[in-house]
Amino acid sequence: MPITNEEEMDKPANGTTHNPVQKMFGKLYDFLASAKLALALLIIILVICTGGATFLSGEKADKYVFSTLWFNALLILLVINIACCFSGRILRRRLTVVSFGMILFHISFVTILLGVVYNSLFYFRGTIRLTEGETLQSGDSNSYDKFVHGRFFSFLRVRGETRLITVHHDYKVGNENKRAAYEIEVGDGGVKKSGVIYVTHNLTHKGFTYYPEVEGYSLFVMLADASGKDIYGAHIPLQSLKQKDGSFIYATGSKEGVSPFPFPQQHIQPFMGLLLGFVPSAEMDRTGQVDYKAYPIVGDDFKIGDEPILEGQVKSGETFHAFNHGLAIREIRYWVTMTVRHEPGKPVVLASLCMGLLGLTITTVGRMFRRRDRAERVL
């Protein structure tokens, strides 16, 4: 009699029933555990990494490639692929010293990739500039000259303040001169951490690490009216411009060179262009000679004239006059630039590397003992 029941037709010869859900998951597992998928993913990721590092180096590579969701999705898919391949081949074996080492090695490879993905999505790198005695809010994006971060990073993770206490010139550790060292304090409320950072030493607080970059001089200029009353004051950071002979020029301007700037810059309408240069004293720190040039302001757009109408030299602490106002160089301070980094995936990657090394060591030792046992049996 022919079989007409569809359910009976779905039964195999051994009497068991096919489960469509199990079949679907079985096919999905076979796909994820495929060696062809692993090879394809490795080639695609290698091509993307090579192209990103070659044609979009630096911040652009982070923004358009390495921190994107689609690239990290490829890495996660590779992690799943490796995990499926690993579980299908390794876990079926009898647990021995050699297989245990291989298990550790494969797990470490998976966790390394997970650490890389986690880091690329939540990392932060920023540059913060401070003058001695100045305090900035660490969680305010306006406190940083420039910054890049992962897609899911939030400034709410950066709490508290960053304060530059002082800069130590010719700072020595033992008999070694570290040149310049920054004494800083970071944190919020009662949970603050302070320390001295220099070229081979940094400060880490709650996952954020502070590295020294460059430093320079800042002149505190006080502006007084014709009657001698102080009406405006500001710290004027000077660029440190390295010359061909290795010496430095400290002056207002930009990285491209020396130039004047509109002064004053806040609360009062600029009425002069001011160019300042500083020659530090070889005898006493934070003192020296200040060269100045005063330029007229031309037009309603506050453009600075081409030729100075006044120039001269004064010592730090002295006053010069321009445009019926007095300008006193009250104080010489240092400004510094620090790099702030948050790399939450770094500990995961480092721990995974140690795990992988341990796994390789265990596997190697296990195989050595296995060969010795086989040799003894032969004898």
Rank of each mutant, 00 (worst) to 15 (best):
M1G: 12
I3T: 10
T4H: 08
E6L: 11
E8Q: 10
H18Y: 11
Q22W: 03
Q22R: 09
Y29Q: 05
A38C: 04
L39K: 10
L42W: 06
I44A: 13
L46K: 00
T50Q: 00
T54A: 12
S57M: 09
S57H: 06
A61Q: 12
A61I: 04
S67I: 05
L75A: 07
L77W: 06
L78H: 02
L78V: 03
V79Q: 06
I80L: 14
A83R: 04
C84L: 13
C84M: 15
C85D: 04
G88M: 11
L91S: 02
V98P: 02
V98I: 15
M102Y: 15
F105V: 05
H106Q: 09
S108R: 05
V110Y: 00
V117P: 01
Y118N: 10
Y118C: 12
F122V: 06
Y123K: 06
G126C: 03
R129P: 01
G139R: 12
S141N: 01
D145A: 05
V148A: 12
R151K: 15
F153A: 08
S154I: 06
R163T: 15
I165W: 00
I165C: 03
H169C: 03
D170M: 14
G174L: 06
N175F: 12
K178S: 04
K178E: 13
A180L: 12
A181T: 05
E183T: 10
E183M: 09
I184A: 02
V186Y: 02
K192G: 06
Y198A: 05
T200G: 00
H201I: 00
L203H: 01
K206R: 14
G207Y: 01
T209F: 11
Y210D: 02
Y210C: 02
Y211N: 07
V214G: 04
E215N: 08
L219M: 07
V221F: 10
V221H: 01
A224M: 13
D225N: 15
A226W: 15
I231P: 01
H235E: 05
H235Y: 10
H235I: 03
I236Y: 01
G246S: 08
F248W: 14
F248I: 05
Y250S: 00
A251I: 08
T252Q: 07
G253V: 02
F261T: 02
P264H: 05
H267A: 08
I268P: 07
F271V: 08
G273W: 04
L274I: 04
L275C: 00
S281T: 06
E283M: 10
D285V: 11
D285K: 09
Q289G: 00
V290M: 14
K293C: 05
K293A: 15
A294N: 05
G299Q: 00
D301Q: 03
P308C: 10
L310T: 02
T319R: 14
H321Q: 09
N324V: 07
L327Y: 15
R333Q: 08
V336P: 01
T337A: 14
M338H: 00
R341V: 13
V348R: 00
A351Q: 07
A351R: 04
S352Q: 07
C354N: 08
G356E: 08
L360C: 11
L360S: 12
R370N: 10
R372H: 09
